[in-house]
Design a binder for these strands. Structure first.
Length: 645
RNA sequence: GCCGGCGUAGCUCAGUGGCAGAGCAGCUGAUUCGUAAUCAGCAGGUCGCGGGUUCAAAUCCCAUCGCCGGCUCCA
């Protein structure tokens, strides 16, 4: 006879009694109509519905609307996929298969890579497994026993995982004839997987290490209902439409050329004007904040890169050239000439902080497989600055950089995430310096009240850093702004200042960028606005379209007048119908179309149409220029009006 | 760099061993039209580049450059 236990049902707090050893689903009872239990939280731990409850506990049901539910479903979908793969390809060895942000994957070791046809077959087999409503059953067993189970099945990757576990007991899950090592929990039975799709297949190294064998990874996604799956697939299609590579072509912003080389951006006129606007905006924002503009060379002697540590730690990413028997490195970073400017004369504590700003073009030989449109290139220009300050000033400097970043990002309307990256393996400098620098960054973020994530071991080789990540159309995060503390370069270059005590002291150096690489920022910006730039950034602000050719002279005069006021205006000269020209301007996402027919010529006016279709009243071209100027100032939060270049 | 896919007109793509195609864009002509596509004609190609197999290669093979999806790495 079993004893009674007390269960506290969350979130309500309702108490009930059950007999010890009852399963979670027995305790929870039948769900309301149209709802079903997916799993549960027992004393805060996620468990299966079949979990036996032995003592007093709190219990919270996980339904498909719970935030944890989708992850459980996707993880179970990965198991079902592995079961399907094993039944079609019995020789396949399974590795790992977790849920990820928008779906799941599973890695397999197979003789030949999967094809698109294979994916269809696997999906078909998964549907069969789902329709059989197989139970997921859990078994706990000693680690050694699990090792012999998996080694008997020839699942060497599972055995390797088990070898590294420290727990004496592990759990395995079985549905049908498929057994997998897994912590769980899972959905109660395969029938809950109603909406899923296998999306792609790709190579992936075992345990993410490039020295390990390459496995075949199948990606998929899953939802509780078909509508959500459809919505997600539609989102992917929409995201493709705002892919900056596609819009870059459609809007004639930039291109790449295999004759020039991979990862080198060619800015077309419309892309170049956006970059000019960004650059001028940046120069002004930096001057306002006490930065000084500097310009350094692209080629620096290799000896200098040896002294800085770049040659030892960054050589494989650098381009080198030799002239007159002298070796030079193409700069991958802008800091060295900034340090030499600092060193060019004696500095007093009264001079500090010194903030050197450079729109610095750098080259980094990124591996060919990582290049990605504007988001990952080999030549790029950073809005780079190096701040040299006393250790006492460090905290204030970092805080004002954080303010700078958040003001600028709010102008563009970006949300961002903050990460702190700590000391990596391949690094220079003393433990003490690393600790001081890491503490300085952390303290500044905490004083500013920002939430942040910690990335252990992901700092630069010379110091820890704060990274700011913006999201692209596919919700992928891209690092743009970064703030890096550096105690080691001032040491290596023997930078000093004279303190109030008359003695020499070592300044601290902060490397930082706000937009990051202008190329990457432009890429993220294109996706962020889906190509419809706000007026202050739009390459063409007004497209003048005439009803017939007879208004062309007036249209040209309007265009000249607008350009005189600094408006970026163009005339569509083609003998096409008005509707056609409107459509063209609309496709190019021009913010304003100025319609000119006989009525406008007689009234000496233009009829503006916004790209959202809104029709404005007739106005003179000068009134229109004022309107554009107001809108520029409004959309740039007062930073940029007309006459920007 | 690694695994897989792909490269045909300015763009989007069809063509899988036997005459290189379509739509859009471009040009010319006609049309002069009021807010998302007027009509007709013309022109446009080293089928990424280089080798090879074959009577014959856009198509099959090798190599190379580039692109795409991932892995690893990073602004």
């Amino acid at each position: 006879m079993s004893k009674e236990i007390e269960i506290t049902l969350l979130p309500g707090g309702e108490k009930l009694t059950a007999s010890s050893g009852a399963s979670v689903s027995e305790i929870l009872g039948k769900p309301a109509a149209g709802q079903s239990w997916v799993a549960a939280k027992l004393d805060g731990q996620l468990v299966d519905l079949s979990k036996k409850v032995e003592q007093d506990a709190s219990l919270e049901a996980i339904t498909k609307d719970s935030p944890e539910a989708i992850e459980i479903l996707r993880h179970s979908a990965a198991h079902i996929m592995a079961q399907a793969v094993k039944s079609i390809f019995p020789e396949a060895r399974v590795a790992i298969g977790p849920a990820i942000e928008n779906g799941f994957y599973y890695d397999f070791d197979v003789e030949r890579p999967f094809t698109q046809e294979d994916l269809e077959k696997i999906e078909e087999r998964m549907r069969e497994i789902v329709s059989r409503k197989l139970a997921f059953s859990r078994r706990d067993l000693p680690r050694e026993e699990a090792m012999s189970v998996f080694s008997a099945m020839g699942e060497k990757y599972k055995v390797e995982l088990l070898e590294q576990f420290s727990d004496p007991t592990v759990s395995i899950y079985q549905q049908g004839d498929f057994v997998d090592l897994c912590r769980g929990p899972h959905i109660p039975q395969t029938g809950l997987l109603r909406a899923f799709k296998l999306t792609s297949v790709a190579g992936a190294y075992w345990r993410g290490d490039e020295h390990n064998p390459m496995l075949q990874r199948i990606y998929g996604t899953a939802f509780f209902d078909v509508e959500s799956l459809k919505k997600y697939l539609t989102f992917l299609e929409e995201a493709q439409k705002r892919d900056h590579r596609r819009l870059g072509k459609e809007l004639d912003l930039f291109s790449f050329s295999d004759e020039i080389g991979a990862g080198m951006v060619i800015y077309h006129p419309k892309g170049a004007i956006i970059r000019h606007i960004l650059e001028n905006f940046e120069k002004r924002e930096h001057l306002l904040r006490g930065y000084q503009l500097v310009i350094g060379p692209t080629l620096l002697k290799t000896d200098l890169w040896k002294r800085s540590g770049h040659f030892d730690h960054y050589r494989e990413n650098m381009y080198f050239t030799e002239i007159d028997g002298q070796s030079y490195g193409v700069k991958p970073m802008n800091c060295l000439s900034h340090m030499l400017i600092y060193k060019s004369k004696m500095r007093s504590y009264r001079d500090l902080p010194l903030r050197y700003f450079e729109l610095g073009t750098v080259h980094r030989h990124e591996k060919s497989g990582v290049l990605h449109g504007l988001l990952r290139v080999r030549q790029f220009t950073q809005d780079d600055a190096h701040i040299l300050c006393t250790p006492d000033q460090l905290n204030d400097e970092i805080k004002s950089i954080i303010d700078f970043v958040s003001e600028v990002m709010s102008i563009f309307g970006f949300d961002f995430e903050i990460e702190i990256s700590t000391r990596p393996e391949n690094s220079i400098g003393s433990d003490e310096d690393w600790e001081r620098a890491t503490a300085a960054l952390t303290r500044a973020l905490e004083e500013k009240g920002f939430h942040y994530f910690v990335c252990e071991g992901e700092g630069a080789f010379y110091g820890p850093k704060i990274d700011i990540k913006l999201k692209d159309a596919l919700d992928r995060r891209w690092q743009c702004a970064t703030i890096q503390c550096d105690f080691t370069l001032p040491e290596r270059f023997d930078l000093t200042y004279i303190g109030p005590d008359g003695g020499r002291h070592r300044p601290v150096m902060v490397h930082r960028v706000i937009l990051g690489a202008l190329e990457r920022f432009l890429g993220v910006l294109i996706e962020h606005y889906a190509g419809a730039f706000p007026v202050w950034l739009a390459p063409v602000q007004a497209m003048i379209v005439t009803v017939t050719d007879s208004q062309l002279d007036f249209a040209r005069a309007v265009c000249t007048e607008l350009r005189g006021r600094g408006v970026r205006a163009e005339v569509d000269l083609r003998s096409e119908k008005l509707g056609y020209k409107i459509r063209e301007a609309q496709k190019h996402k021009v913010p304003y179309m100025l319609v000119i027919g006989d009525k406008e010529v007689q009234g000496g006016a233009v009829a503006p149409r916004k790209r959202d279709g809104t029709q404005l009243d007739l106005m003179t071209s000068l009134q229109f220029a004022d309107l554009v100027e107001r809108e520029c100032l409004e959309s740039s939060k007062g930073r940029v009006g007309l006459n920007i270049v």
